[in-house]
Design a protein around this nucleic acid. Structure first.
Lengths: 152, 152
DNA sequence: CCACGGAATGATACCAAGTGTCAAGAGCAG
DNA sequence: CTGCTCTTGACACTTGGTATCATTCCGTGG
């Protein structure tokens, strides 16, 4: 469990979705695997810049399109930080429903399993009449390293 | 309870915070009270446009500044919708900690009291070592009216 | 009632992030 | 290899928000 995603998995997902495995997509998958292993978060713009160092011919629009795509395919998670910025990170393979605890200083991300009780959803659905389809939970804090830093 | 905010309350809050009750702020407070009563959500840009009809001399920057300010003062809540857009709405007076259930079609907002159990925060704090400082929970669904619409 | 100091404003320029368009390029099936 | 079509790259454009700064106008103290 908590295995990091491989390039082959991403490319296979493209094929399976009836999409082509093109050179730009391979280049970006490579970069994302690296960032996934390092558990680093990034914006679409970041991805574009990083990929350009290895493959300068990749266009900006393509980077944005690919991030959108990989998000839809479930390889990327959009995470909101305490300062309101939104970035992405590579979701670990075989990781089910979870949310994110993020450091408001260094932006480190820790997945957490905690969530609202299903019964609570049931209750609010009945009280409001809504058909509930999804939710997002973001938890903010300061990671151990940044707590230590602020004491100095 | 669940009383809507009045213009006087907003202006009093400005004074109490050592800020001036200027003409633009009055104009925006008026608009916000209307939207608050109608439980309508809006962006900073929306506010600017709306206020301009009554007070064309109000500048864009001022609208943005005022929204930021009122958010800090606790009169406005930032709400995230299912499509990822972020907008504001006037928080009802005397309403404590709560989250939002939003309609993914018409953007209607319903406040809900449900939240994570304090014990769960305790657990994740201990497991991760983080000092937890805050959180955001957004719940998405389809309101009764929009469910009915989609059947037609 | 007036005058003054500084907060607040409005105009404008600017910036970052993301989208739409479309001709050209390149997977992949046959 | 060939051709169809998905995908791309370039770039103009839009949107949403911020920085700057001279000018305005609150609100206090006289």
């Amino acid at each position: 469990m908590n295995q990091h995603v491989t390039i082959d998995q991403m490319l296979a997902a493209f094929e399976q979705a009836g999409m082509r495995t093109t050179r730009p997509r391979r280049a970006m998958a490579e970069q994302l695997v690296v960032w996934g292993a390092a558990e680093r978060e990034f914006s679409s713009e970041d991805l574009w810049h990083a990929v350009q160092e290895k493959a300068p011919w990749v266009g900006r629009a393509t980077a944005y399109r690919t991030v959108q795509l990989l998000q839809d395919l479930g390889f990327l998670d959009r995470v909101t930080f305490a300062d309101g910025t939104e970035r992405y990170h590579v979701v670990a393979a075989g990781h089910g429903h979870h949310h994110h605890l993020t450091c408001e200083v260094c932006h480190r991300i820790v997945p957490v399993d905690a969530c609202i009780a299903p019964a609570a959803f049931e209750t609010m659905a009945q009280q409001s009449g809504f058909a509930i389809s999804g939710h997002r939970l973001e938890i903010f804090g300061r990671c151990p390293a940044c707590q230590a830093d602020s004491l100095r």
